[in-house]
């Protein structure tokens, strides 16, 4: 495989490590939305390039955001 499939590897650097001013906050669903699928599922970090620490923070934030109905739970069809 000479080139990785680009659609899976758009971002290889952790966005939050790259920009320390970005805050992960469960009260900001607009920002969190780019880390879930259209169905509300959390995207694995190997896809987004997020580091383990920030992925953990993201996961916590998304779950909290769901609890206060700012983000949807995963819809299972």
């Amino acid at each position: 495989m000479s080139e990785k499939k680009r659609r899976f590897g758009r971002r290889k650097v952790c966005r939050f490590c790259a920009d320390p001013t970005l805050v992960i906050d469960y009260k900001n669903p607009q920002m969190l939305k780019s880390f879930v699928t259209i169905r509300g599922k959390i995207i694995p970090r190997r896809i987004t390039g997020t580091c383990a620490r920030h992925q953990r923070e993201l996961t916590t934030a998304i779950k909290r955001s769901r609890m206060v109905a700012l983000m949807p739970f995963t819809s299972v069809d």
């Binding site: 659609r7 899976f8 758009r10 879930v36 699928t37 259209i38 169905r39 599922k41 959390i42 995207i43 694995p44 190997r46 896809i47 996961t59």
Partner: peptide, 12 residues
């Protein structure tokens, strides 16, 4: 893209 990708690796 995201949907597809995520389906292959379910969230932990």
């Amino acid at each position: 893209t995201r949907e597809e990708a995520a389906e292959k690796a379910p969230e932990t």
